[in-house]
């Protein structure tokens, strides 16, 4: 029997909100083994296997096509692979997990308010300081794409997997690209978002893989499920 795999976040607030959202749409997600288990089911849909994954892995597996549907953030799809957005369909924004991927500079950089200021500062940074402007971020793909579009070429990325907002104070980097929902962490760290520094508006989405093996049977199952969730994809 053909089957659909739906991956949902395995822990924390995202897991709760995802299960709430499905419940509001009349579909209960069961997790019979409790929070330690990684396998679940969807009430009334025996053809659907639910898997509990970390959000980052959901993005990766959707892009690869090893899972069919999943709930994860827009940012992770854009970050995981350059071809990420082409490899999936965003079937429905879920209205939670909203956050922006932004460029933030030290508040003391009063001369830098826009990306074009950053382009100017980056262009002679090397001759002034003997090194390139350093950008701390875990969003390497998104940063490269957006900086290229802004005409900023002279910088180096310093990969930062946690507490990115501390990078300018610790001297690891000059500026940061990070995700923020309220901006309060940035403000607390004396960082300021550039006026045109929002690179990506992200939120939790129900996402359909385009690279999965969509046989006619599985397509029919998928479309029935999406219809129930008031979601749709462009084919």
């Amino acid at each position: 029997m053909s089957e659909l795999t739906l991956a949902v976040p395995s822990k924390g607030r995202l897991e709760e909100l995802t299960r709430d959202w499905f419940a509001q749409n009349g579909l209960t997600i069961f997790r019979p083994g409790g929070p330690r288990s990684y396998l679940g089911a969807l009430d009334g849909h025996p053809e659907v296997t639910v898997r509990f994954f970390p959000a980052g892995e959901i993005a990766r597996e959707l892009i690869r096509g090893t899972i069919d549907l999943g709930v994860t953030g827009t940012d992770l799809i854009h970050e995981t692979a350059e071809t990420g957005p082409q490899s999936v369909d965003f079937a429905k924004p879920l209205g939670f997990g909203a956050a922006d991927v932004v460029v933030a500079v030290p508040s003391s950089w009063i001369d830098v308010t826009h990306m074009h200021d950053l382009a100017d500062v980056a262009s002679d940074f090397r001759s002034r300081h003997g090194r390139w402007l350093r950008v701390a971020t875990k969003y390497i793909t998104i940063t490269r794409q957006h900086f290229a579009r802004a005409g900023i070429a002279e910088y180096r990325i310093v990969e930062s997997l946690g507490a990115t907002e501390a990078a300018p104070a610790s001297g690891v980097a000059d500026i940061i690209v990070d995700i923020t929902s309220t901006g309060s962490t940035l403000t607390a760290n004396a960082l300021r978002i550039l006026e045109d520094g929002v690179m990506l508006k992200s939120q939790a989405n129900l996402i359909v893989s385009r690279t999965a093996n969509w046989t006619p049977d599985r397509q029919a199952q998928r479309d029935r499920l999406l219809a129930k969730l008031n979601a749709s994809i462009k084919l």
Partner: peptide, 24 residues
């Protein structure tokens, strides 16, 4: 600018300096 940088704990010499920022 110097006050802001000191408050934020940002080095005054290792990256952009207050002088450079003010001048620009």
């Amino acid at each position: 600018i110097t006050e802001q940088m000191v408050d934020a704990g940002i080095s005054l010499s290792q990256g952009r300096t207050p002088d450079e920022i003010a001048a620009r």
